[in-house]
Simulated assay, not measured.
Amino acid sequence: MTLTYVLVHGAWHTGQAWARVVPRLAASGRRVFTPTLTGYGETAHLLSPDVGLGTHTADVVRLLEEEDLRDVVLVGHSYAGMVVSAVANRVPERIARLVYLDAMVPADGENAFDVMPIPRSMLGTGWRMPPLPELPAPFGLFGVTDPGDVAWVRTMLSDQSVRCLEEPVVLDNPAFAAIPRTHIHCTVKPEGFDRRPVPAVQPNGEPADVRELATGHDCMITAPGELAGMLLDVPVSMPV
């Protein structure tokens, strides 16, 4: 059976962010899907105050069901840690492993601001939230510092609805806790963006699987080869 990867981009980005990773996974015989969530990129015209975590959860669940994807390695980058958690809670029978890629890892009932308080300071008075600003090196634009790559990333970026970060996640399915997970942490990050420590034991009782990439947040752009290698290396139990 062919192993399937579903790579879910983070806030403000699009599925195009995975363009350098997909060929590396496909070359190893993997099927790869990189959906663009509602309100971003080619669907930016659909952005509204009502677009939120539930919308994006439904986007990914729809993909899994319409393509009848099973035994999926479901990868969520950044904000999409919220999304893949909610998806796995909805359809745990389709997920072989969760990968939190420099991602938010919520508990039941939390929203993105609970997990990562920093972005709350960026809120204005409206319902739209612009992308984070570019920072001085080595942090750059979401960790991207090469001028050509920065220009490319800018073509992907668009506003998002504040509802995405305010809507709480529901993680009430006991089968969700049984799904094994891998955490990949990017180690080049600005001060104040501290992540929660990963417990030594996963919810399913297995030892924690935590890996590090010595690069910035958008590692799929800055270190696609290393990232693809890590994704190919995650343990997945396939049905006989």
Rank of each mutant, 00 (worst) to 15 (best):
153 V>S: 00
36 T>D: 04
161 S>Q: 07
192 G>R: 11
138 P>E: 09
219 C>V: 15
209 D>A: 08
6 V>W: 01
43 T>N: 11
61 V>A: 10
215 T>G: 10
176 F>D: 00
60 V>D: 04
90 R>K: 14
9 H>P: 04
141 L>D: 00
28 S>D: 15
233 D>K: 04
47 L>G: 08
142 F>D: 00
154 R>S: 05
135 L>H: 08
237 S>R: 15
67 E>M: 09
132 L>Y: 15
239 P>Q: 11
100 Y>V: 07
175 A>S: 12
154 R>L: 08
189 K>T: 14
174 P>S: 05
100 Y>N: 08
145 T>F: 02
95 I>K: 00
73 V>T: 09
206 E>L: 15
106 P>C: 10
155 T>H: 08
45 H>K: 12
204 N>H: 14
171 L>S: 08
95 I>R: 00
217 H>Q: 10
126 G>C: 05
231 L>F: 04
113 F>E: 01
197 P>Q: 09
130 P>F: 13
71 D>N: 15
205 G>Y: 15
209 D>C: 09
183 H>K: 09
87 V>I: 05
229 G>C: 07
87 V>W: 04
160 Q>I: 13
101 L>Y: 10
234 V>P: 03
199 P>F: 12
21 V>N: 01
176 F>R: 06
231 L>R: 01
128 R>W: 07
11 A>R: 01
147 P>T: 04
211 R>S: 02
138 P>G: 08
185 H>R: 15
93 E>D: 15
103 A>T: 05
84 V>Q: 02
119 P>G: 07
151 A>H: 04
51 V>S: 02
220 M>I: 04
211 R>E: 05
71 D>V: 10
38 T>Q: 06
217 H>N: 03
224 P>F: 06
178 A>L: 14
81 G>Y: 06
91 V>W: 03
157 L>A: 07
2 T>D: 14
69 L>M: 09
125 T>W: 12
213 L>V: 10
118 I>E: 14
136 P>I: 06
239 P>A: 12
231 L>T: 01
116 M>K: 07
113 F>V: 02
14 T>K: 01
107 A>K: 15
31 R>P: 02
231 L>K: 00
126 G>V: 11
91 V>Y: 03
52 G>Y: 02
56 H>S: 09
64 L>M: 05
179 I>V: 14
75 V>T: 09
201 V>Q: 14
86 A>D: 01
155 T>S: 13
210 V>P: 01
27 A>S: 14
218 D>R: 00
234 V>G: 03
158 S>F: 11
21 V>P: 01
212 E>L: 15
151 A>N: 09
7 L>G: 02
75 V>Y: 01
122 M>V: 09
130 P>E: 11
231 L>E: 01
38 T>F: 07
83 V>E: 03
95 I>W: 02
62 R>Q: 14
232 L>H: 03
47 L>K: 11
66 E>C: 12
169 V>S: 01
195 R>H: 13
32 V>S: 02
184 I>Y: 00
87 V>S: 05
100 Y>F: 15
139 F>V: 06
25 L>R: 02
58 A>M: 07
141 L>G: 00
157 L>S: 03
233 D>Q: 11
123 L>T: 10
197 P>A: 13
189 K>A: 14
92 P>L: 05
215 T>K: 03
185 H>Q: 12
116 M>L: 15
